[in-house]
Amino acid sequence: MNSLLEIEDLRVTFNTRYGEVTALDSVSLHVKEGETLGVVGESGCGKSITALSVMGLIPTPPGRIAEGAIRLNGEDLTQASEKRMQALRGGEMAMIFQEPMTSLNPVFTVGDQIAEAIMLHQKVDAAQARRDAVALLDRVGIPSPDVRAGDFPHQLSGGMRQRVMIAMAVSCRPKVLIADEPTTALDVTVQAQIFDLLNEIQREFGSAIILITHDMGAISEMADRVAVMYAGRVIEEARADDVLDYPQHPYARGLISCIPALGKDAGGAGDMLAEIPGVVPPLHKLGAGCAFADRCAHQAPRCAVDKPLLAAHGHHPVACHGVEEGWL
């Protein structure tokens, strides 16, 4: 089956005080109907920028899509008009953000905010949209939804707000649902509930989900395939089991070895960063070689001058000279 969403050789740049920096380079990803693609990687590696590129929400300026294509059902979104993107956003594709506390507008009721999303994409009147909004609130597990619809965001807990965000995102049965760290701000039991909800919705609507997360536990439970990103590039990509069981890239190995026991209580971002010494180089200091070289125990002379490209070696695509040449 063909991919629903295909990102091809995407390059996104930002104008900064260090000049133009490349935040995403040669990023290629794809996801099929009903499939969940996990995207993992350290903070600042470009996960959100990838998601925002798809939604056409890169802040421009300073950012811009410099190269590449993003195809939804074959239509290149990088060439689409703003009007067309408005029709697609919230309709064919929707996004849930990391910050449930601040992602809802404080001066409108949650019911109105969901109803607005419905009316933007469906030909229904306000009363019907309102009823649909209440039904959606019920669907995402909010008790007494008809009352809650009249609440303002500040009257709801973080978990409830994230449910509202999900209700809003799925209100038009999007083909692609991007969830950018949807549970980071929530406590563990609520996290599990939100993931269950996403799973149910996927089963019901057949949406493709792109799940961005730091949580390898969530990946092992939710994702069919995983892309590991580092410094604006995809450095390993495969079926979730393959990446989790046979990580190839030294960075991916580090990432996965940090998980105490997969599927149980996978550590948060903090734990896993502590395990890989060093930090991601800032974008304006990215050189010609492998961006991970400074932190890599297997670094070879070639690594400093020659950028490894994503290519299938053995198991699955990896961007590492060591894996490519077999000395790792």
Partner: peptide
């Protein structure tokens, strides 16, 4: 702010 991004993300 984040809720403006949300508004744009829903196609406003």
């Amino acid at each position: 702010s984040d809720y403006i991004r949300t508004a744009r993300a829903k196609g406003a």
